[in-house]
Design a binder for these strands. Structure first.
Lengths: 269, 269
DNA sequence: TTTAGGCATTGATACAAATCAATGCCGAGG
DNA sequence: CCTCGGCATTGATTTGTATCAATGCCTAAA
């Protein structure tokens, strides 16, 4: 494997620039909870007063990769708003873990649990380094019940997460391991033409778990892709023959679609 | 198989009485959309004026088992409120189907799609005979954006569905086929003692798909349960030795829990 | 009454993916 | 510099579950 580079550094760098784009006032990285609350696009239509109120009961935190944000069965004391970075949500059974979802900033972590005051069903572990706003659960619920715009924003967020989870389930149950890998690679290459190459965005072991298979199976499946025009060397994907790949694997917007969070707007009666 | 009875009739009877209990004004079955909208408990705190408004753009329908309510990839033109009965939501790929969720009244069918105006990710097929209120999608979205209480109710509904989906995923990925069957039976017997028996609430082929396995596997797994104190004859479950069963299979509230829809209440600023 | 079709059961077999195991590689830390 | 630990690869083997196939049962229609 020749093409390897200090992956974590490269990725953090990439992440930082992505992070900036998501913000509205993108010239500076938020240093206070209040600033961080201004970043996610889907909170745009929430009145500043409400954000102020939330910020008053919130702290901004930075957590390194690997940290556990909360444990399965814990009752949420904070609403966690992911401002930058990625988090994996895992179902746990003693030592077994199964990845249920990957959450990318900007998004809320399991708002369902916070809203209903029920225990988390999943463990949350940091993938990249993250920045999160921790809002006291009670304050968060109060804000949702007193501000209609925020309620709509959270609803949109929850709805999108629901659809993502559905897509994930369909991907796992309706496609073979080989197809999942093929589609994953194809999606990375979306819009590209033959002879370009892309870097895998995360470690292979994480891709494997995202695709619901073991590292080993993933590893074994990669060489197979060569006969469909996709070659993976180290963490670089080479598109030798993209049309061949598209012939074999079919991206489906109802499975592979990227759906952004788009809140509805409050309307007077 | 001796114990069989005209299953569909028995079950419909059971369903009718259950249906009555869910209503608030349970003495009569709703005949108009407006009456039907008064039934679900989680719509209780929505102002009558809003329900009136919804009812104005709605019709009440009855559909027999087996009907398809909507197809995958369709763009929703109605919000479907399930007032009575059960619906299965299936991921479809050409001829392959995979059950993603079973929705029981009273609940909304995939509010996420309706709210975001995106195509359905799943097919909806009627299990038992259902009664549904079909509310024009536009009117539904308008109501959600203009009435905070309704917005909260829908949010609660969406949140609960999210958690159910998470539980379902955990059940499938963290337990073996045998455990899923064991836990399913154990849950039917919750609160019962040894030597009681229960009837399976739905056909075996449906239980199998709910548990993410084929009929055949389910069928083969049932006899195995005998060594753990559970005996299934026809559609009757006999609890020969419940404590033995509980020793082998462990119900987990984070997987097997029944979570009701409990909306938050609007609060003034 | 006969017949046809759906569901359930049972057996034989196939197969995809997990598991177990060994090795190589690379980067971090002593 | 060497060494240790995580990740990736590759091979051998197992195993859980699906698939294919045949039969029986019950119900509903002819």
């Amino acid at each position: 494997m020749r093409h390897r580079e200090p992956t974590s550094k490269t990725r953090n760098a990439k992440l930082m620039s992505a992070e900036l784009q998501t913000g509205i006032n993108s010239n500076l990285i938020a240093a206070t909870p209040r600033e961080a609350l201004a970043e996610p696009g889907w909170l745009r239509s929430v009145p500043p007063a409400t954000l102020d109120m939330l910020a008053k009961h919130a702290v901004l935190h930075r957590m390194p990769a690997g940290s556990t944000l909360f444990e399965q069965a814990e009752t949420p004391s904070f609403a966690l708003l992911l401002v930058a970075g990625r988090v994996e949500l895992l179902g746990v059974r003693s030592t077994e873990e199964t990845l249920v979802e990957i959450v990318e900033a900007p998004d809320l972590l399991l708002p369902a649990a916070v809203l209903s005051g029920q225990p988390y069903l999943l463990r949350a572990r940091v993938l990249d380094e993250v920045r999160i706003v921790m809002i006291q659960a009670e304050a968060f619920r109060d804000a949702v019940t007193s501000d209609h715009a925020l309620c709509l924003a959270v609803l949109a967020c929850q709805a999108t997460q629901f659809r993502r989870q559905t897509m994930h389930a369909k991907n796992l149950h309706l496609r073979s391991a080989e197809e999942r890998v093929g589609c994953y690679l194809l999606k990375l290459l979306e819009g590209r033409t033959t002879n370009t190459s892309v870097r895998l965005p995360i470690e292979k072991r994480l891709i494997a778990s995202q695709l619901g298979m073991t590292r080993e199976t993933f590893s074994r499946t990669l060489p197979v892709m060569i006969r469909h025009g996709l070659r993976v060397e180290g963490d670089v994907v080479h598109a030798d023959d993209i049309s061949a790949a598209r012939l074999r694997f079919h991206l489906d917007p109802l499975v592979d679609g990227n759906e952004p969070i788009i809140p509805l707007q409050v309307k007077g009666k």
